[in-house]
Amino acid sequence: MPETPAPQPTGRPGINTGPGRILTALYVVFAIAATGRSILQLVTEAQKAPLAYWLSAVAAVIYVVASVCLVIGDRTRTVAIAACTVELVGVLGIGTLSFVRPDLFPDRTVWSHFGQGYGFLPLVLPIVALVWLLRRRRPAPITPGAGPLTTP
């Protein structure tokens, strides 16, 4: 309960501990928000903006994957990195496309206008997540004879 002292961290922290916990919480919120929105849009008004809504659904799936990986922790770090990379590419690509071809996006999506409707968090989150995940790099496994630095 709240008054017991905080345990001291032991060893190298995992990807979902420390600041990663705030990141994970943000991802869970975004996963819920994006999933709810895209299911609703696809069920009720799929014809209005099919491209935008299907992209929202794709974004939602990626947020869910990234959230689940962050919650599980270090074992799924690689998948989390992949999901966050796709997310960054997505928000940059769709963000640009929504300015160049606004006719394709009659309704807003998570990624259009670089996530403006969500306080630009969709743009900031994958960058922060990637920086966080890549800084937690595991020591590379030593594979004999794998490169010029290994002694024969």
Binding site: P2, T4, A6, T17, R21, I22, A25, V29
Partner: peptide
Amino acid sequence: MIDRTRYGTGAIIVA
């Protein structure tokens, strides 16, 4: 409550 550090507190701020 699981992560009894300042960052567990951060999750409450997000919520």
